[in-house]
Simulated scan of single mutants.
Amino acid sequence: MDRPLSIPSSRRPGRALATFFTLTFLISWGAWVPVNLAARGVIAAAPPAALANLVAVFGPLLAAVLTARVMNGGAGPLFSGLWRWRLSARWYAFVLLYPPALSLVTSGVSVLLGQGWPDWAHPPILQALPDVAAPLWPWPLLPLLFVQQTFLGSSMGEEVGWRAFALPRMQARWGALPASLLLGAVWGVWHWPYHSTPGHPLEHTPFGWTVLGTVAASVLFTWVWNGTRGSLLLALLFHSSVALTSSFVASGTGSGRSAALAWVAPLAVIAATRGSLGRRARIPSGAEESQRAGAGKA
């Protein structure tokens, strides 16, 4: 029988969170900042951008696994939410359809304000793909890219850290809404090296709007996490839907307008749940679930 993990005490969660966030920024920024400096001409060479980005996006996962192993005895429980899939269809519908719906609404508002329709015939992802004369190209790639993004891309690299590790501890310490706002701000700041890298797609997007967007998204991620009793699978699907919507669906321009519209649903959720974001009862962390399972076997 595996040794059960101990429930973090009132002191240990704070140290675990500090360790996790420190490691996350050290790994992610440590991988990407050399690329940033090389692009600015500060240093002569840097690792390939693709490799640096791969390490950077998996920084939260690596930090969560390392912290859990050192401070909680093991990282296995972080992934237990992958098997929490027997959920209401409305949760699947929301995480898969909300991001493209928001993109379409943003485009519609932009048109109403005098801008032209986005070029939906040439989605942003075409800039990274070869020119192929195939019907409906590149849409046939969507299922494959969705699976890759979910299990081998930034969805897995980030959500194990942000949601499976940090969110339960932050909610236990500060409550659902404050935890969501704080985690969303940290999540946004984590993206800063991309914004300051010459030639990166985020270079010309105002950094403040990105942070507002991640804070808004964090509220919705917490609501989904609480409503699905900590389903890591749904968090991964939600993240993938957000990522691939921006790649496959051209949207109306205007960072400020996009950030403002992104807050409509979070504010509605905050109002509907009176700030609880669906947290009716304390959701066990992975460590707590492991201890309870061990106690049941004893």
Score class of each variant (00 low, 15 high):
His200Gly: 08
Trp137His: 01
Ala121Gln: 15
Val132Met: 04
Ala179Glu: 04
Val249Ser: 04
Val219Gly: 05
Arg169Asp: 14
Arg280Val: 08
Pro201Tyr: 15
Gln291Pro: 02
Arg279Cys: 08
Ala259Phe: 06
Phe58Asp: 02
His239Val: 03
Gly275Ala: 07
Asn53Leu: 11
Phe238Met: 08
Leu142Ile: 09
Trp192Leu: 15
Asn72Met: 12
Ser155Cys: 10
Asn53Arg: 14
Val33His: 04
Leu112Asn: 03
Ala235Asn: 10
Ile270Phe: 05
Gly153Tyr: 09
Arg3Ile: 13
Pro48Tyr: 06
Arg11His: 13
Trp85Tyr: 12
Arg279Val: 02
Phe248His: 01
Ala295Pro: 15
Phe165Cys: 12
Leu237Met: 07
Leu267Arg: 01
Phe94Ile: 05
Thr106His: 09
Ser218Val: 06
Arg173His: 08
Gly294Pro: 13
Leu54His: 08
Val35Arg: 00
Ala260Val: 10
Ser155Gly: 13
Leu181Arg: 01
Arg282Phe: 06
Arg173Glu: 12
Gly227Ala: 06
Thr205Cys: 03
Leu234Gln: 08
His122Leu: 11
Ala75Trp: 02
Arg90Cys: 07
Pro140Cys: 06
Ser231Gly: 06
Thr205Glu: 15
Gly256Val: 10
Val215Thr: 08
Met1Ala: 14
Val57Lys: 09
Ile7Gly: 03
Ser103Thr: 09
Leu136Cys: 03
Pro193Met: 02
Gly296Thr: 15
Ser255His: 14
Asp119Phe: 10
Gln127Pro: 00
Ile283Ser: 13
Gly14Lys: 15
Pro123Met: 01
His200Thr: 03
Ser6Tyr: 03
Leu136Phe: 12
Ala287Leu: 09
Ala39Asn: 14
Leu104Met: 13
Leu97Cys: 12
Phe248Thr: 00
Gly188Asn: 05
Met170Asp: 06
Pro47Trp: 09
Ala134Thr: 03
Gly157Val: 09
Ser6Gly: 06
Arg173Trp: 11
Ser285Asn: 10
Val249Lys: 04
Ala128Lys: 04
Trp120Pro: 06
Ser9Ile: 07
Gly41Tyr: 07
Thr222Glu: 04
Val132Asp: 03
Phe248Asn: 01
Pro168Arg: 15
Pro123Ala: 03
Leu181Met: 08
Asn72Phe: 12
Val65Asp: 04
Val33Phe: 02
Val269Met: 12
Thr22Trp: 06
Ala295Lys: 15
Ser247Val: 00
Pro34Ile: 10
Leu37Thr: 03
Phe146Gln: 07
Thr222Ser: 13
Val211Ser: 14
Gln291Asn: 12
Leu145Asn: 09
Met1His: 13
Arg173Phe: 04
Ala260Asp: 01
Gly59Gln: 02
Val111Leu: 06
Thr24Tyr: 07
Ala281Gly: 13
Val264Lys: 00
Met71Phe: 14
Val219Ser: 04
Ala68Arg: 10
Ala268Met: 02
Val219Glu: 04
Pro266Ile: 00
Leu51Asn: 02
Pro34Leu: 05
Pro266Lys: 05
Gly157Ser: 11
Gly108His: 01
Val95Arg: 00
